[in-house]
Amino acid sequence: MTTVALPAATPRARRGLVERSIMPGFGLTMGFTVFYLSVIVLIPLSAVFITTAGMGFDGFVEVALSQRALYAYRLSFGAAAIAASINAVFGLVVAWVLVRYEFPGKRLVNALVDLPFALPTAVAGIALTALYAPNGWIGAWLAPHGIKVAFQPLGVVVALTFIGLPFVVRTVEPVLADLGPEVEEAAASLGAGRWQTFARVIWPAILPALATGFALAFARAVGEYGSVIFIAGNMPYKSEIAPLLIVMQLEQYNIPGATAIAATMLIASFVLLFAINLLQGWSRRRMAA
């Protein structure tokens, strides 16, 4: 979700919406872009808000803020926050190790980090369930200690941790790689210990990227569906995530109900998107400085 950095527009000859250019094809490519964007994304998305607006305020509140829905939001956002925090810690360690150290099999490890981007969520979901079920490789090992993961809220955290890792690693990695050794050498020559150098020099430099990675992992986790539903157990008021509640409403042909919850989720996504844009701006300024 990294937004593209664009150079400031050149001030020359900007009378209308478009600057004059000898390049051909603006009408055709721009026309198709706006048409396809509207038909596939914007008009269908607007349907959520227009349908919700038609429900009236009371109808909206009754579904979107019902007891069951509030439990579902709490689980979706709470589990997403825990998973993104776990990923922030381990993602930083993984990025650090990949950028700074040499070890056998590094290229393979580097490729494996992107597995959650490439592996279909349903496959991840059934695989994690098999691992963490009471008779699974990990579940059987945890069961004697009284720890249950599969079919519990904890299972949701496990699934969301799986899908979120690459967001943190791939956001922090380039910033760490860009951090030249000069500043660290300067800190060391001024008598700073390794830990002081990390806390005072490296940490402030990578913090914006780490926060961005956290936010990206969190945003993805809040809306995640496929990897979660197999492992969660899906009990209302307990292990039912918000996207599943939308599906439940749809299966009961309660389209307004599904739409009201979807509108709430969409607003949350837009707020997150805005926050991510601010964080990326902070990150870019920090890198440019």
């Binding site: 706006v34 998305l45 349907a47 995640e224 496929g226 939308i246 599904a258 969409l266 997150l272």
Partner: peptide
Amino acid sequence: LITLIDLPFSVSPVVSGLV
């Protein structure tokens, strides 16, 4: 326009079907 092109990545898959 660039932000709008990125929009589908921030939408829950379930909502992407619902629309």
